[in-house]
Design a protein around this nucleic acid. Structure first.
Lengths: 152, 152
DNA sequence: CCAATTTCAGAGTAACTGATATCG
DNA sequence: CCGATATCAGTTACTCTGAAATTG
């Protein structure tokens, strides 16, 4: 008895969940080569694009609680992949950035992740990829507004 | 210092991860009203659309190991939301289906989930939604082929 | 004996809630 | 005192690896 999916009926929420599950599974294996977990890689990628974010800002951006984010960040700090320095204007806030070795590990891991992405979207036109991106971007925005205050 | 995203540069893998994280967070809250976890809801949805799947088939479809799936399924069985019966043609295989009370809980929870999905995609044209769906469907297919045998 | 399925046991990851402390 | 941040502690949710039994 085969097992063919009925694509037209699958909800987008469901599909996002399954694709994410598959991606995590695959990335876990690939990233273990550098001793990185999936959220460690994700967090480092955010910091690469936007340095000097605080723990609270990172948490909002990743849609997790600050308590969850601090755990990731602490481990990265212990391994000296991320450094955190006191904000000059606010003694309570710690701003994070990648260390040189953090950057170099990220650079080393990047091609594998890019390769996975290319493989998954192979054959999807650039225009359609942009549409997917735009839909996801909007969903991210809406989700940011639900549990937390407005992103203002 | 505001916190605006640079959408054009965000990788799809990253966006899928964030959207999924936000969805799970939101669903966890909404589904707790019926005592359902996110994967319980997901598994029940699959069974609603495709009854008589075995644990192994469900696991492949959800991109998790059979060991993970059996844990979800066992709990649902304990709560009598799912019933499992021996396959007439193969005494080892147990085929699962929703019980009447399982169906009725699923029906009760459905509108909330549908509402979330509508909210997230509000304003995205039907044609674009179909493109997103198609891209995700392809990604699911590719991911099924990586860790496991072909879906044959 | 082999391949697929089911399932137990143990472990690890990832995320959460609650509470406390600090800073402006 | 309030609001935002940081962070400790305990807990829950979810998934995995390993191993064993069953069935055709």
């Amino acid at each position: 008895v085969p097992d063919s999916p009925r694509s037209a009926e699958l909800s987008l929420i469901y599909m996002v969940g399954r694709v994410n599950q598959g991606i995590r599974r695959e990335l876990r294996t690939r990233l273990s080569e550098w001793g990185l977990s999936v959220q460690e890689y994700t967090t480092m990628s955010i910091l690469d694009a936007r340095p000097e974010l605080s723990n609270a800002q990172l948490a909002r951006r990743a849609l997790v609680t600050p308590q969850s984010m601090i755990e990731i960040l602490s481990k990265l700090e212990d391994r000296e992949l991320v450094a955190r320095v006191v904000d000059p204007a606010h003694g309570r806030i710690l701003r994070a950035r990648l260390t040189p070795s953090g950057k170099s590990i990220l650079r080393a891991a990047d091609p594998t992740v890019k390769a996975l992405q290319s493989h998954l979207l192979e054959g999807v036109s650039a225009a359609d990829q942009e549409r997917v991106r735009e839909a996801l971007r909007q969903a991210m925005e809406r989700l940011s507004g639900i549990g937390d205050g407005p992103g203002a």
